[in-house]
Design a protein around this nucleic acid. Structure first.
Lengths: 335, 335
DNA sequence: CGATATTTTGGGAACGGTTGCGGAAAATGG
DNA sequence: CCATTTTCCGCAACCGTTCCCAAAATATCG
């Protein structure tokens, strides 16, 4: 019913809690190996588990980092988190992950909750590129480092890790064009998410490079969720415009759009090619499999974790803006 | 750089920290409203945030519950967690979620980590029905309640929440039979996960009820992961047996099997009907949409949270074994 | 107005660890 | 065998709160 403490162990052995503490933290230099063994044995026997709260209070750090993501349903974030947790653990940090669910007010609350729990640093992908910047700044001013990944933020003195979205989008669209596609829809994302705007830029640049007209009617605001992608596609279809390819800014809305197309009996890839940025394993689960720009998720997670722990351990360490190279994987949807 | 404490506030105002503490915890009965106002104002002005570690240490509880799930990639668990977090928050508890990744040794480690962090209770879906039972028992003996959901465990004096798997599976297979299907494959799960065995039972009962032969060759051990489902399907196909429907024990492996079928140009539902237990939104994302038994996820999360907090607050409160009713949703894959 | 009741405040011991400092005991050296 | 160094251990302060108890301030009443 009650947890055993070092005092219990000390009493059991008739020694002081200082010695017990030292032994349990492996201070071989200051406690006789014989005593050490005795202490460790009884600690084990009594089922001792260090009280993290007490240690944190005393040490003035928690050895845990908070992670805030906008969405838990996209495999992208979940995979990132798995990698980050692994890397962070390797570096001696626990993680608390929170999901803002695309709601920047919830994001703000989680941010406060995490600082209140005294996390040593925060890894985050933001809901909205400007809504909470003052809050981010405030947290950083208090000495809690934040590293942003993927859905980053502008004008803050913080480290960031992201993919080369413009370039990869450019290449993806170029691929479509070289396949002979001439009426390429861009299922874009909201203008308040930075990767969305970068991917839109890449799309536009590719069209320009190949002297194809840039037509606003072919740029769909597809939101972030499955049903928004579907809705956008339906709206486009209602206009009756000619098209032969869809370039999506992200996987989730791509699936929505794809479903609408298939329900209308468009054949993929015969009638219309589809591809997306930020594809994950999900692109191989659906039918047909989808060509995608894959993010170097693991590397992103590792770099972000490195940057964060580095800055936790040395607040003066320089901020870095890391842009990683994505990779195009062609599948059935663009045959 | 440093957090402000109640002592800083007390010093600023020339009063004692006791009074500040009382004011900040809203003890209107013991502090003059005037003083209260003054304290709250300066606390706000100085950017005070309560140190949770200190409070936890003092209060001997953390007001947080740990959640352990076997997998983060299945929408089922993610959705459950979202609901549980919401409900738990409503009841005044924070959550720490950990993902064991189908590895019971990792699960054990997370269990230890959570008790070390002194969570007040644990909500979990296990990796393996027997591997860690002594550990669960041990944790519960220490007075930390555990409530199991979905992938439950046998022979423990713990509350559990799950769906009526046998019955729903029975009905789903019955539906298939009534449609005229006579060679129904069961893509089963590992025998160490309880819902998998229950769903298998339901399948078998339906066959018996309708006097269809139960043939071991039609029961595929499909594992838990996408590729395992695909592999199992491929193995079955290699045997060249006749079949007209597939009843899957879970969504993830269903998608794997479905892809194999579609790659082999089986038409769904014309050539073969497909359906699954534990379907989520994902079943509406794929093409064609998939008939499924849907779990009352929200209700499961609410019940589990209620049971857990109840037991945290009153250790003597009786254990409950809640079996919730699932719902069959017919879609394109069984037309 | 003094006595008593009530409200409001302050002092200080916990909670469970860590750690600098000093002293006792043991080891080493001459 | 004594002086000196080294090893090992205990004392006590501290981290930021809460909360019991007593003291102080204020209100109530005959």
């Amino acid at each position: 019913m009650k947890y055993v403490t070092i005092i219990d162990i000390a009493r059991e052995l008739g020694i002081s809690k200082s010695t017990v503490s030292r032994a349990l933290s492996g201070d071989t230099h200051n406690v006789k190996s014989e005593t050490m063994k005795k202490i460790i044995d009884t600690a084990h026997r009594m089922g001792y588990q260090r009280n993290e709260q007490a240690v944190n209070l005393r040490q003035q750090h928690t050895k845990t980092v908070g992670i805030i993501i906008p969405d838990a349903m996209t495999p992208f974030f979940m995979t990132f988190i798995q990698h980050a947790q692994k890397e962070l653990k390797k570096r001696g940090y626990q993680t608390i992950v929170t999901v803002a669910n695309e709601d920047y007010e919830a994001e703000y609350e989680y941010l406060m909750m995490l600082t209140q729990s005294r996390v040593d640093g925060i890894l985050m992908s933001v809901c909205h590129k400007d809504k909470n910047i003052e809050a981010y700044q405030q947290v950083m001013n208090r000495g809690i480092p934040i590293v942003f990944f993927d859905r980053t933020v502008e004008g803050l003195d913080a480290s960031q890790v992201r993919m080369d979205d413009e370039i990869m989008s450019y290449f993806m669209v170029e691929t479509l064009i070289r396949m002979g596609k001439r009426h390429i829809i861009h299922l874009a994302g909201p203008s308040y998410v930075i990767p969305a705007v970068n991917r839109h830029i890449g799309y536009r640049q590719a069209l320009e490079k190949f002297h194809l007209p840039y037509d606003e009617r072919y740029v769909l605001e597809g939101g972030l969720k499955f049903h928004e992608g579907a809705q956008a596609m339906q709206n486009f279809l209602a206009q009756g415009l000619e098209f032969d390819a869809v370039f999506c800014f992200t996987e989730t809305t791509m699936v929505g759009a794809k479903n609408v197309l298939q329900n209308m009996h468009y054949r993929i890839p015969e009638d219309v090619a589809i591809c997306t940025v930020s594809g994950t394993e999900l692109c191989t689960f659906v039918h047909p499999t989808i060509s995608a720009v894959e993010q170097p998720l693991k590397q992103m997670a590792i770099e972000a974790s490195r940057l964060l722990t580095q800055q936790i351990e040395d607040p003066e360490s320089p901020r870095e803006n890391i842009v990683l190279r994505g990779e195009i994987v062609l599948r059935e949807s663009t045959k």
